[in-house]
């Protein structure tokens, strides 16, 4: 159950890591200044947010779910927090409310998937749309919400570099370590793998599958909130329009690329780290090559498509246990 599937000599993680190294090499030759310390730091910093989101997504996918509502819940919760801060509320009020909001979204996702039995991919997509609409209608008036001056010191804290390592990177690696240990050594972590591998068997064995599913979506919503916090502190604002962008697919890309199977139960946190590394390098390199945003989208989408094809070939869907209507 470790990251590599153990099928061949090289698992997907090793392959992706090798590709990342090659791409890194190619870019360092092709792109001037690619190897400069400033660029490398900004590269790992910008990709950390993606990586943290990927951790949340990885946990749901490992448990045979998926959470397409992450970006929506993140942006609405953070934007709401900023609105409250701008209205003069203290952080100790605004942050817990944002946390509560995220937990609520997670619980709704979990209940819809576990108890109402709506396919996860569908429930979370619809919840994403609904949460965005709810947020825009009731909580957040404008698209862009800035961090008020009074709280700028928070941003400065995130921008700090203890020992030369940016805080977002520390956060990402810290989260990855916690998630890795949790998945590997905690009982609930093992349960998530068991559910992803075979939900019916897990249920028969006595794993509280439904409760675990709810937990899984609450965790992913909270991780999304953390990623959102870091993202906001980096740019001192939150634009709710990222919901209609392709961020959530980048997150899936990071996860699937690293070798976490969409049918659940296979892969590990290391896969996310490796996937994040490759995508980070590529995004940075493409930006420095002056590719347009839309061209980057096409390239990313094609890579994701390729990753999906690879995933299907490496982890073929089992006709006997695949559920009818599993789309």
């Amino acid at each position: 159950m470790s990251g590599s599937s153990g099928r061949g000599r090289f698992g997907q993680e090793e392959i992706i890591f090798a590709i990342a190294v090659i791409v890194f090499g190619v870019f360092s030759v092709m792109v001037p200044d690619f190897l400069s310390a400033g660029n490398i730091v900004s590269m790992v910093q910008s990709v950390s947010v993606l990586g943290i989101l990927g951790l949340g997504m990885a946990i749901t996918i490992l448990g045979r779910g998926v959470d397409l509502s992450m970006v929506a819940s993140m942006s609405v919760a953070i934007a709401w927090m900023l609105v409250q801060l701008n209205a003069g509320a203290p952080l100790v009020q605004a942050l817990p409310m944002a946390i509560a909001f995220s937990v609520l979204v997670g619980i709704i996702n979990g209940v819809l998937v576990a108890y109402v039995e709506i396919p996860a991919i569908f429930a979370t997509l619809a919840i994403g749309v609904t949460v965005y609409g709810f947020g825009k209608f009731f909580l957040v008036e404008s698209d862009v919400n800035h961090l008020p001056e009074a709280w700028r010191w928070l941003a400065d804290m995130v921008a700090a570099r203890p020992l030369g390592v940016p805080v977002p990177v520390i956060a990402f690696l810290g989260c990855a370590a916690v998630a890795h240990l949790g998945l590997r050594y905690l009982r609930d972590g093992r349960f998530i793998y068991a559910m992803g591998d075979n939900p019916i068997a897990a249920r028969t064995t006595g794993v509280p599958v439904r409760v675990m599913m709810v937990l899984q979506y609450v965790i992913s919503a909270l991780i999304a909130l953390l990623a959102g916090l870091i993202m906001t502190m980096l740019v001192t604002s939150m634009n709710t329009r990222i919901v209609s962008g392709t961020l959530v697919y980048d997150v899936i890309l990071v996860v699937v690329l690293g070798g976490i199977s969409l049918s659940g139960g296979r892969g590990g946190i290391l896969s996310v780290v490796v996937g994040t590394l490759l995508i980070g390098i590529m995004l940075n390199g493409m930006t420095m090559l002056n590719l347009t945003y839309t061209a980057q989208n096409v390239i990313k989408a094609l890579i994701l498509l390729l990753a999906l094809v690879l995933d299907t070939l490496i982890n073929p869907r089992d006709e006997q246990t695949a559920q009818q209507g599993d789309i």
């Binding site: 819809l112 109402v116 039995e117 709506i118 569908f122 429930a123 619809a126 919840i127 994403g128 749309v129 609904t130 949460v131 965005y132 609409g133 709810f134 947020g135 825009k136 209608f137 008036e141």
Partner: peptide, 27 residues
């Protein structure tokens, strides 16, 4: 002439409700 977000909210809610009814009803 509602604020932006209203139609997302309404459509998303209807979609979820419709799927939930469909899933429960079929079962």
């Amino acid at each position: 002439g509602l604020r932006s977000g209203a139609s997302s909210l309404v459509l998303g809610t209807i979609l979820l409700m419709a799927v939930a009814i469909d899933v429960r009803w079929l079962k």
